[in-house]
């Protein structure tokens, strides 16, 4: 029989020599699947454009976004309801303070991206920390661990019980209106989501056979939690992070709209621009439509990528 095994091994070695030397990890395979998904590509292209604009916005902008040239030149008289629309020079016209609207849109992308990414990171970090500790404690910590889990999860439940906008508004009111406030407020809203998600995912993994196998090998519990349970629980959290980026941008825009964002409206931000456009909706609806469309398209990009990522990482679609 051993000669037969040798023969089979030689054959498989030959066939293995044909494809690449290294094995394919699950992450690599997920990335391959992602590349074949048109929705993922669409989302990625949208996001790439968004990031490029966010980084290069001030260079790309044809005019200074804070310069009220329209009022200086007497073209814009918002008090009398005169705000000129698109022209050859000013592609999207002026805003109510006579600033070039196209330049403001380009420069505003940076603030929007910053708010989205940082607030998601805040939510992800705090949430993953709470959820990770709770999940590991509940999965491996025995009786004491279950109590740690119960206490942490009740705190998270309290956060979850508050309506998200109300929570964000109260945090913003507590800290005073600023961009940092918006980031913290929006981040805090997503904390319970990440915490619950990671905990649940870790609990499910903790019951897996490979955790039992590691225990029977004599691996320490902390090591098991970090090297086995955590990496296998991350997929849904990463997906959620991409989806949260989309909602974070919208929520940050809502907070800015309510006047809780950066009080210095000279620095353009899509949410603030949307809020500022309110009195002039009848005269020049473009002032609201463009920032709104930009927010929606960006959020759509994140959502498309997130959903595609979920499909690519789903263990049920594996094999």
């Amino acid at each position: 029989m051993s000669t037969k095994i040798d023969k089979i091994d030689r054959l498989s070695e030959l066939s293995a020599a044909k494809d690449d030397e290294r094995g394919v990890s699950l992450w690599t395979e997920a990335f391959r699947r992602l590349r074949r998904n048109p929705a993922a590509i669409t989302g990625a292209v949208i996001l790439l454009l968004f990031v490029i604009v966010a980084i290069l916005g001030p260079i790309l902008a044809p005019f200074t976004p804070t310069d009220p040239s329209g009022i200086r030149e007497g073209v814009v008289k918002s008090g009398q309801g005169i705000i000129p629309g698109p022209t050859g020079d000013h592609w999207l016209g002026y805003d109510h303070q006579g600033r070039d609207f196209f330049s403001r849109m380009l420069v505003g992308a940076r603030q929007t991206l910053l708010v989205g990414v940082i607030s998601t990171l805040i939510g992800l970090t705090i949430g993953a920390l709470i959820g990770g500790v709770a999940g590991a404690a509940a999965g491996l910590g025995g009786r004491v661990g279950r109590w740690i889990d119960v206490v942490l999860m009740r705190i998270v439940d309290m956060l979850l019980a508050l309506p998200s906008l109300l929570l964000a508004v109260s945090i913003a009111a507590l800290l005073g209106a600023s961009l940092t406030t918006v980031m913290i407020a929006v981040g805090m809203v997503s904390v319970p989501v990440f915490a619950r998600l990671l905990r649940g995912s870790m609990l499910a993994q903790a019951g897996g056979d490979y955790v039992l196998a590691a225990t029977s090998l004599g691996v320490k519990r902390n090591t098991i939690a970090l090297t086995h349970i955590l990496p296998n629980s991350l997929a849904p959290v990463i997906v959620q992070a991409t989806l949260t980026l989309a909602t974070a941008i919208i929520e940050a825009a809502a907070l800015s709209f309510l006047g809780l964002g950066n009080p210095d409206s000279a620095i353009p931000e899509w949410g603030v621009m949307l809020a500022d456009a309110q009195p002039y909706l009848g005269i020049r609806p473009g002032l609201a439509i463009w920032p709104a469309a930009a927010i929606i398209v960006t959020a759509l990009g994140f959502t498309l990528l997130g959903e595609a990522l979920r499909e690519a990482l789903d263990p049920k679609l594996r094999k």
């Binding site: 490979y210 196998a213 086995h228």
Partner: peptide, 19 residues
Amino acid sequence: SSLDPRMNVESILTEGLRA
């Protein structure tokens, strides 16, 4: 299900030795 899907065979086999 008893093998960690995110570990290659070398890591799976060295885990016990390390521990």
